[in-house]
């Protein structure tokens, strides 16, 4: 479910899960809501997050918000809003697609007042997406990777048939690219060192 689809079809936001449940034979009744204000963000994959929310009518009525001004924002810790979704329901769920791996995120339900200022109603928990690649950020690792020629082969042997939305070939390509990157980066470091 992408944000594009939701803008085209706002009704898709309305608790699709509960509707799905009701198509099955029901032997046990479960509540549609718990009368709590909550916004929960969960990891699905390095590129996808899921959130669900519930705003109680009692709480909603104490605000100046109207259903057509409710908005869901996905943010990183630097408060930059990366995705902005219009909501039309007090209870619902949403998948944020195409997010960045290894990045902390939280989301917020808010509305805009008459002056156009955002008023926050709910803030989610903070989560970090998993990594989907070999981590090359650590200074320490650069040093021993350069020293250990066998390491690349060990890593290649560790992941030849790993199926994480990638073919083995693309993983090998990635390792090759990484090798080029490493050679370039390390040589530029060394050039810098020589110049100093």
């Amino acid at each position: 479910m992408s944000s594009h689809l939701l803008f085209d079809n706002p009704k898709a936001m309305e608790c699709n899960a509960f509707e799905a449940m009701e198509t099955l034979t029901d032997h046990f009744s479960i509540p549609k809501s718990y009368a709590i204000n909550t916004l929960t963000l969960m990891n699905v994959s390095p590129q996808t997050l899921f959130c669900y929310w519930e705003l109680t009518p009692a709480f909603f009525e104490t605000t100046e918000a109207s259903k057509d001004t409710l908005t869901l924002l996905l943010k990183t810790t630097n408060e930059v809003a990366l995705q902005k979704i219009k909501l039309n329901t007090l209870i619902g769920s949403y998948y944020f697609e195409e997010v960045t791996s290894s990045t902390p995120f939280f989301c917020e339900v808010l509305y805009y007042n008459q002056q156009g200022e955002p008023i926050s109603l709910l803030t989610s928990n903070l989560i970090k997406t998993p990594s989907d690649r070999i981590n090359t950020q650590e200074e320490e690792s650069r040093i021993w990777m350069k020293k250990e020629e066998g390491w690349r082969e060990i890593i290649r042997s560790s992941i030849p048939s790993l199926s994480i939305q990638k073919s083995s070939k693309s993983l090998v390509d990635e390792t090759t690219l990484f090798r080029k990157w490493e050679v370039n980066t390390l040589s530029s470091f060394e050039n810098l060192k020589d110049k100093q």
């Binding site: 998993p130 990594s131 989907d132 690649r133 070999i134 981590n135 090359t136 950020q137 650590e138 320490e140 690792s141 021993w144 990777m145 250990e148 390491w151 060990i154 890593i155 560790s158 992941i159 790993l162």
Partner: peptide, 8 residues
């Protein structure tokens, strides 16, 4: 393999 730092 995707740990930080990568395993030697």
């Amino acid at each position: 393999v995707f740990a930080t730092p990568p395993p030697k």
